[in-house]
Design a binder for these strands. Structure first.
Length: 318
DNA sequence: GGCCAGGGGATTA
DNA sequence: TAATCCCATGGC
């Protein structure tokens, strides 16, 4: 059990529900349990005794209080694991207050979007797991992506100690998946993505993963070129991998949600991905990836609100 | 450069 | 029961 004092600009729901990761589940008590780097832990944020919270809170619907600061408690982690894994994974040494201030000052639209996801942090995930996870994510919905990744891990990943009464599995290694053919993955129900995964696994394993794990140290363009050379990796998936596992924060992944939000809020043609990319580069520069996350989270929340409102209207008519 | 199939499953019509 | 949609890409 590790206790980290005075975590700021930090909210577990915002972090684990903003589409960057797929292996964390919310528990009944609002904490989150998940597996990364072969370790399973549970995280929860406790409010500080004086009730301190980030300024400007209240952008969330219903006026409910959502804490963005407090004590972070990581159950299942040793001090060594915290220093070696979770500190970097949660990006705890970055000043998100400064990032939000800069983005908000430069753009009113993002300033508003930030209010709905004030506690977002960009995780530093494993390169390989992120690569495969986002190949699976293409043209897919989040519940099924999560299911596919869990099934893949249970079938081909290393068994880990049971935690909270459930068996846990590490994400499968590229060595293991490189031995497989698409048919071997049929029970995972990945659809046409199965071939992308086995081919990419073979490509990564061909140099023992050396290329893949060197990408955070090379210029973004070079890393992007390598990633898009892999089977099943196009511009969108490559940008996600760069942003969520390689610290390439200028990356601006454009998916259907971002296309929608850019169309609605900036009036750019919904199909003009090129203009959106150029716009993001000019407007957000090195902070493009952070801006993308606030916009994405805002749009998803907006959609859920709209759906709830519609349901309420239908029920009223009955 | 534009179009369409690829799988599968949930949701909507 | 039939369309439509989903954090796109590959191949034509």
């Amino acid at each position: 059990m590790q206790l980290i004092k005075e975590v700021k600009d930090f909210n577990l729901k915002h972090i684990f529900d903003c589409g960057q990761c797929f292996r964390w589940e919310e528990e009944a008590d609002g904490s989150y349990t998940g597996t990364a780097f072969g370790k399973t832990v549970n995280m929860r944020l406790e409010r500080e005794a004086d009730g301190a919270c980030c300024a400007g809170s209240g952008g969330n619907h219903g006026g409910g209080f959502e804490s963005c600061s407090g004590f972070l408690i990581i159950d299942g982690a040793s001090e060594e694991d915290f220093e070696n894994i979770w500190r970097a994974y949660l990006d705890l040494d970055r000043d998100y207050g400064e990032i939000k201030k800069t983005l908000a000052a430069g753009d009113l639209v993002v300033a508003n979007a930030i209010k709905s996801g004030e506690g977002i942090r960009l995780l530093n995930q494993d390169n390989w797991e992120t690569l495969i996870s986002f190949i699976i994510s293409q043209n897919n919905n989040i519940p099924r992506i999560k299911r596919c990744i869990e099934n893949l891990s249970a079938a081909f990943g290393e068994p880990l100690p049971e935690y909270r009464g459930r068996k846990r599995y590490a994400f499968p290694t590229f060595e293991r998946l490189s031995e497989l053919e698409p048919e071997d993955l049929s029970e995972i129900r990945l659809g046409y993505r199965a071939r992308y995964i086995t081919e990419t696994a073979k490509a990564v394993a061909s140099d023992g993963g050396e290329m893949l794990y060197s990408l955070s140290k090379v210029p973004t363009k070079e890393a992007y070129e390598y990633l898009t050379s892999l089977c099943g990796v196009g511009p969108k998936v490559a940008n996600c991998i760069l942003l969520f596992s390689m610290e390439k924060y200028e990356s601006f992944p454009i998916d259907v949600w971002v296309r929608r939000v850019m169309n609605r809020l900036y009036n750019i043609d919904e199909n003009d991905v090129k203009s959106m990319s150029a716009f993001a580069g000019e407007k957000f520069g090195a902070y493009g990836g952070f801006a993308q996350q606030y916009l994405f989270y805002y749009m998803r929340e907006f959609k859920e609100e709209a759906a709830a409102a519609e349901k309420a209207t239908v029920n009223e008519k009955k």
